[in-house]
Amino acid sequence: MNYNWNWGVLFEEQYLNWLISGFGWTISVALSAWCIAIVIGSLVGVGKTVPNKIVRGICATYVEIFRNVPLLVQMFIWYFAVPEMLPEDWGRWMKRDLPNPEFVTAVVALGLYTASRIAEQVRAGIETVPPGLSAAATAHGLSTAQTYRYVLLPISFRIIVPPLTSEFLTVFKNSSLALTIGLLELTAQSQQIAEYTFQGFEAFTAATVIYVCIALVATILMQVLEKYTRIPGYVGKEA
């Protein structure tokens, strides 16, 4: 194996800036998409458990569509196909005037995709609440909305914190797909450094180390959250 090691390349100003900027984009895409995903995922997940059949059908369809099409294809549809399918004025606006189109598209695509996965967790969380509790709520004269607000949601959101940790990690990894529509996030920048300098080993190692650090920090944050939200005696470690 002939290879000229040169770790110094990572600290040359130009390439270091590339890495920092890539890191910034990865974090901003992932966190923005996560916000969309939590809001829509919660709504859709709740929608899958309500008594109304039409709402349940719509939410189930949403989950099936977004889960069964690869994220890459969704990314391309949002970026290339949606502007063509909208009325002409809107399409022109998306192609010409939308600020930061790659970033916005990546956030929307990743957010809506992740929402379908979060929706499944939310639904599962609501379904693990013992049926006696909602029966008790009904017996107390609570309406359906009140039952969700005061009984089902507070419990289920605390139950699903651990499974959400892995979704939270996944959103950072999946943000790398933004490079396919031209956003220079961390993976794209490391690839670019590899191409410019022929120091692939160093460039990819740098990206790998940064991703591992992101995963560690995200895991620690979620564990802190888990500690504060754990319901005593409800979802213990051995449960």
């Binding site: 990690l169 950072f172 990894k173 999946n174 943000s175 790398s176 797909l177 490079l179 993976t187 490391s190 690839q191 590899a194 990819f204 990206a207 790998t208 991703y211 591992v212 992101i214 995963a215 560690l216």
Partner: peptide, 10 residues
């Protein structure tokens, strides 16, 4: 499990 698949492919 903490790195993206695209990076592994690269």
């Amino acid at each position: 499990r903490s790195v993206p698949l695209i990076l592994v492919i690269f």
